[in-house]
């Protein structure tokens, strides 16, 4: 059971990266390849708040959300908005992520830093398995976040506008949706959420400059398995990647762990090229 919990908590981390990718993808049809680095910055800000400044949890969360939101908004202004096509945005956001990694190394160094968890660090035993409180919080947060975002996009006007943009940008513009404003807002919201994600991920992974690179690829695989644009797909894709990775490493060795994850990705894409929950928009011309 401990192995399943480990897979789920790791999967939750990947799912959160996938959620970040998805929000930007829905709003702008582009991938923000600096998403994992934004979460990494969140983890470092959490370390700064908890350890260096010794602030209470609420203030640390607000600080992380604000700081990463500003970074994400800045990213939209310099790495996304000036670039016309989505393909080039892949490169510019990747470059922005690399800059973030470098800056973090300059400020906090290259060694892993421990980020405390407000819920304590005593191991919990549940149904015969063991997990840390921060891991439980990660799983709960990932599920709650996906449910909340899905509900928002289905029931709130701004959420519907986002979906409209993702389906037909031109038509949405004609209906009065400000595409530019919503894209900017999507980046800012992603930053806001990445701040909270950083506070939650830090206790499990440490605040370490290499975190962005470690998360970016697996988060993308989770998204591809689940289906681009699908929040529930990203969540299930994340859990699938985490569980497969852990079980294969346990029974076949860590050498097969990554291999199996990519084998499953290939299999899913062969059967359903849009991912498990992705949708294809067909047009009759």
């Amino acid at each position: 059971m401990t192995l399943i919990y480990a897979g789920l908590s790791l999967g939750a981390v990947y799912a959160l990266v996938a959620v970040g990718y998805n929000i930007v993808f829905i709003a702008s049809h582009s991938f923000n390849f600096a998403q994992a680095q934004l979460m990494m910055v969140g983890a470092f800000v959490a370390y700064l708040g908890y350890v260096t400044l010794k602030l209470p949890t609420v203030i640390v969360i607000i600080m992380a959300m604000t700081a990463v939101m500003l970074v994400a908004a800045f990213e939209e202004r310099i790495a996304v908005r000036p670039v016309a096509d989505h393909q080039t945005q892949l490169i510019t956001t990747l470059g922005f992520g690399t800059v973030l990694t470098g800056l973090v190394q300059v400020i906090w160094g290259t060694q892993p830093l421990q980020v405390p968890f407000a819920g304590g660090d005593e191991v919990l035993t549940f149904l015969g398995g063991r997990m840390f409180p921060d891991e439980l919080a990660l799983v709960v947060f990932a599920v709650a976040l996906v449910v909340a975002i899905s509900a928002y996009t289905q029931r709130r006007l701004n959420g519907l506008a986002l979906v409209a943009m993702s389906q037909d940008e031109e038509a949405a513009t004609l209906r009065g949706v400000s595409v530019r404003k919503l894209t900017f807002a999507a980046f800012a919201v992603t930053g806001l959420l990445s701040g909270v994600m950083g506070v939650l991920i830090g206790p499990k992974t440490y605040a370490v400059a290499t975190l962005g690179a470690a998360l970016a690829l697996k988060g993308f695989v989770a998204l591809a398995i689940g289906g681009f644009g699908s929040m529930y797909g990203g969540l299930i894709g994340g859990f699938a990647v985490g569980l497969v990775e852990q079980h294969v490493a346990r029974y076949f060795g860590s050498g097969f762990s990554n291999l199996s994850v990519f084998a499953i990705l290939l299999l899913v894409l062969l059967i359903r090229p849009t991912g498990l929950f992705g949708r294809v928009q067909e047009r009759t011309v």
């Binding site: 192995l3 790791l10 499990k204 079980h247």
Partner: peptide, 17 residues
């Protein structure tokens, strides 16, 4: 002997083995 991937974020599988 059990090997782990230095880029992995959780070692429960390897330690369990």
């Amino acid at each position: 002997a059990v090997e782990y991937d230095a880029k992995a974020l959780d070692m429960i599988a390897q330690i369990s083995a």
